[in-house]
Design a protein around this nucleic acid. Structure first.
Lengths: 237, 237
DNA sequence: CCAAAAGTGTTTATTTTACACCCATGA
DNA sequence: TCATGGGTGTAAAATAAACACTTTTGG
């Protein structure tokens, strides 16, 4: 068994796969990389882990710098350690995926990074293994959102059921019956109906709802099965 | 934006959460640590990542050294990066969880490590954050096995449905109706019935089955929903 | 009034659950 | 022959899916 002192040391980075939803499409936030190698190319938001912080703290720091926002949904995706994944020096990257309310974010635009939202269906080529990270994140988003009430995180505090349905339809690239969707969502008792309506989407108007935070926290980890067979749908098989 | 050269470097380790099943109980493989710090204390199998290998390759190398086996189910669990998780020096650990056929393994015992199988319900205290890793791995095992035909990996090549049921009952700490369990498993068409019976478990004897490898590989990623509500069962809530 | 989207009702199909019952056999 | 676990049958309950229909309102 080898000693600590004889072991190699590695650069440790974090990269963030940041999803947003503009009411029409699922989007991904990317930047033009500001330093060599690959300066100017499209890249996920990332940064190096410092001595005094965990990888998670580093990811939060990076996100905070970018968006000015603290609260958001974030979870670890995967650690990537391919030998040549970074062309400059061997670097291990822990990828995190985050869901943010695109509206809230808009006012807090960071001047340092010049981030851009791309439609998930028309992404530019990204540096290193970032394409692979995004693919894995998309898969995980579909997987988890089929089982847990995750996608609320992408919407503003007030939203309508048809808006939520449209979001689910974007994520799974399919359509749902509105009647059944309605009942399924409301049967979770995770939403509280508000008094006012959104009149932009239709003449009749659709009632706003907000997340019932207590029920949401209590029930997040129970399986909800929003979507019949997300993998089949996602893979088109 | 900081330069590569000014970034800190970290030790990178892997740790393996190895599950087995002896026909009675779910088990975890641990060793007595062979070097300082915490020499002699109970620990997961682990090792340092080398310059020429990915984290996954390091985990496979460690498992191969220990068990002599190549083929087994392994997947990345989580990267652990708490600042004080290793008492000697800051170390990031990528944890992997593995499922192995305890029978196959028995013949290949490594002399170097003196590994011991502990019942998952009577684990000793482990070093560092290894207890936390095991908890997360148990959670993930329950989560995945509820949706994917994962637990076959813990059984020998030939097994009976009642044996499989007992394994599921161990993992979820509950009981299932044998009739319904039978139908549910067979409805997946993932198993091929063999001609011979196991007569040890009962007088009548139960037919052996083997995994239909093609169907297994084709269907692993489709959702199967073996267990009604695994989280509720697992949490007892 | 009417088109268009929100939302409700209702019927049918499918899946899950509970449990009764038959089967094979070693002691 | 009978106790024991393996395996099948079946009816009831719960869930999901399909789709008709009613509501509201801006143009």
């Amino acid at each position: 068994m080898r000693h600590y002192s004889k072991q190699p040391r590695f650069l440790l980075a974090v990269d963030c796969i940041i999803f947003g939803y503009d009411g029409q499409e699922l989007k991904l936030l990317v930047i033009q990389r500001g330093f060599e190698p690959c300066k100017g190319e499209w890249s996920l938001i990332g940064g190096f882990v410092q001595l005094h912080e965990t990888a998670e703290a580093a990811a939060k720091r990076v996100l905070k710098n970018l968006t000015g926002l603290d609260v958001m949904y974030m979870e670890q995706l995967h650690a990537f350690s391919d030998i040549d994944r970074d062309t400059e020096e061997r670097t291990i990257s822990v990828a995190y995926f985050a869901l943010i309310d695109i509206q809230k974010y808009k006012q807090q635009l960071s001047e340092d990074y010049h981030p851009v939202w791309f439609s998930i269906n028309h992404l530019p080529d990204l540096i290193f293994d970032h394409n692979q990270m995004v693919e894995l994140a998309k898969e995980k988003l579909r997987y988890k959102a089929a089982l847990h009430p995750l996608l609320f995180e992408l919407l503003p505090a007030k939203f309508t059921i048809p808006q939520l349905q449209n979001l689910y339809e974007c994520v799974y690239n399919t359509t749902f019956d509105k009647g059944n969707f309605n009942r399924k969502i409301l049967s979770t008792h995770l939403l509280t109906k508000l008094a006012d309506k959104d009149k932009l989407g239709s003449k009749k108007g659709a009632f706003y709802y907000k997340v019932n935070t207590k029920a949401y926290n209590d029930n997040f980890h129970s399986f909800l099965n929003f979507v019949a067979n997300p993998h089949k749908i996602a893979n088109g098989s």
